[in-house]
Every structure is written in C-alpha cells, then in structure tokens.
C-alpha cells in the first residue's frame, strides 16, 4: 500500500493533536492522594536551640562545623544550607514585641522542601534526582554528572555542590532521612531531636488537617496561611508562622508546579519524537517534490540543450 503525502500529513497532524490535547498529568496530580510523608514546621514553637542542625550533622556524617552547635551567636548573620550543612536555623526580628516591649525573635529552619513536583528532578538530565513515592526527593550520586542544573532550577536555592572536592564532588541537600522512615520507621533526625516538637512528622494529608486545626484553634497565634500547601505546586515540608511569611525570608511563589510550563513545552514538542519526525517528513516531502520537479525540469533543459 502506498502512503500518499496528503495522508501522511493527516496522520501526523492527528498524532500531534492528540499529544497536545491530552497533556500527561503532573506528578503532583498523580500523587494527590497525599499518602507521602511530610513535615510540619511550626515556627511559633521553635526556640532556636540548633539541635536539629546538630542531629542532621551527626546522622549524615557531615564535617564538624567551624563553630559549635551550642554557639547561638551564629544567629547574628543569616546563613544558607550548603555542602557542609543540610539545614540551618535563622533568626528574624519581624517587629513582634513581648509584654515588656522587647523585640521577640522568630526562628526559621530551612532545608530542602521536598516539593511534590520538584524542579530539580525536572531539570536533572540524568535522572539522578527523583521524587520518591514516600515523599523524599532522592539524589542518586551514581547517576549524577555534576551539571548543577538542579541548583539553577530549585526555587529555594537548596542544592549545594562540593566545590572543595574536585575528584568526587556531590550535590548536597537534605535527604529527608529517607532511610530512617523507610527502614526503621523513625522520624527524620531533626524532627526526633526537636525538644518542642516544632517539627511534626507524618503523612501530608494528616499534617495539613493538623495545621488547619491549629490555625482554627489559635487564630491569634498564627498567620492564617500554610506555607507549602500550594507554593510551587505543594511541598512536603509545610510551615506555620506567627507573622507574615514574607517577613521570615520565605519566597512568594506561584501555586502551580514550577516545572509544569517547561515540561508542557518539552513534552508536547518532543514526546514520541513527533516534532522532529514531522520536520524531517516535511523536509523529505519538499525534497521529494523538488527532485520530481528537477527531474522533469532537468530532462527538459537537457533535451533543450541538445537540440
């Protein structure tokens, strides 16, 4: 059977149309059941003891810090997680005052937010970063080629790189103590050590309910917002705070998953390689047509030349 050019274009158009019309569900939608693990950080409970930093350092065998963990003067300057520490606590003065008129500090722990639809995993060219069903954004060092696209992609600027290690550098970020809860049924080290349970560990749906209950029960204590419920398409780490999140260094992020647009473009253009196939089919068609024209044209010219 011969496929005519017109028929081929029709088939190609139908194929492309079906791809564009039915975009694949995002990871967030697929996992909407919310059975993954999560952590709820209630910053109003945090007393800034830095025990979480210490526990994280110990469980991940990270290098000893320049200043001891009981040195609270580190709060004098803002810090970021880096290749030597997966989590840091920062102090903020939002203007809140106590009965005596003194400024009251708010402490905020930052680490990988373990997004439901992580940009880092979307940007990763080798699949070294992947979102596990248990909630963790997992890093597989054996697949990593060190391109550091994840560092560019992450809206929270979390992944760090071992620049000091030229031979076997790794991307360093919080691993959610995944082995703790998959193998030993324990909470992450930071949540376990926290003296005031500022970090609550559990299933994401349960924690969201819990957070909403707290907001309803103590409306004066909390800013009526759960950071991470919708931010960047939802994150596994959720936050409650006494003051607007902007004052505590939290970014204002859109509620749709950040990789969705780029994935939509990429996936709709390149799924099943339909667009290159179409392009080459078009070019081939043009070449075929031109050759057929040229063949007849050249024959005409040649005959003309001879005569």
């Amino acid at each position: 059977m011969q496929i005519k050019r017109r028929n081929f274009f029709k088939l190609a158009a139908v194929g492309a149309g079906s791809v564009v019309i039915s975009p694949r569900p995002t990871r967030a939608e697929r996992k909407k059941a919310g059975d993954s693990f999560a952590c709820l950080v209630d910053t109003s409970r945090c007393i800034g003891c830095r025990k979480c930093e210490q526990a994280c350092n110990e469980i991940n065998n990270l290098p000893e810090p320049a200043r001891r963990f009981d040195d609270l003067t580190v709060f004098d300057s803002a810090r970021r997680p880096d290749a030597r520490r997966f989590t840091v606590v920062n102090r903020y003065h939002s203007g809140r005052i106590d009965d005596a008129g003194l400024l009251v500090a708010d402490y905020v722990k930052i680490q990988c937010m373990h997004c439901l639809d992580p940009s880092c995993a979307s940007a990763c060219v080798t699949g070294a970063l992947s979102k596990h069903d248990n909630g963790a954004v997992h890093y597989d060092v054996s697949k990593c080629i060190g391109c550091r696209y994840c560092m560019m992609a992450c809206p929270f600027e979390i992944p760090a790189y071992e620049y000091h290690n030229p031979l076997t550098p790794r991307v360093m970020k919080c691993n959610f103590c995944e082995e703790q809860f998959t193998r030993q049924h324990k909470a992450p080290a930071c949540a376990t050590i926290c003296p005031t349970e500022a970090i609550t560990f559990g299933k994401r749906t349960t924690l969201l309910q819990l957070a909403k209950k707290r907001l309803a029960k103590y409306p004066a204590r909390y800013e009526q917002h759960i950071y991470g419920e919708h931010e960047a398409g939802g994150t596994a780490w959720l936050y409650l705070a006494r003051v607007p999140f902007k004052k505590l260094g939290f970014l204002t992020l859109p509620s749709n998953p950040l990789p969705r647009l780029s994935e939509l473009i990429q996936h709709s253009l390149f799924s099943y390689l339909w667009s290159p196939a179409l392009l080459f089919a078009l070019l081939g068609g043009i070449m075929y047509r031109n050759r057929a024209k040229n063949d007849s044209g050249e024959g005409h010219k040649q005959s003309g030349g001879v005569s």
Binding site: T192, P195, T196, E197, T200, G202, T206, L207, Q209, L210
Partner: peptide, 15 residues
C-alpha cells in the same frame, strides 16, 4: 511517643 499517627495533635512526652 511523638508522631503517633493515630493521635496527630497529641504531643510526645518530650515536647
């Protein structure tokens, strides 16, 4: 115990 999934709002003893 902390983080008892049956009683999510119940604090652990330490907290």
């Amino acid at each position: 115990q902390a983080f008892n999934p049956d009683y999510p709002e119940r604090l652990g003893l330490k907290a």
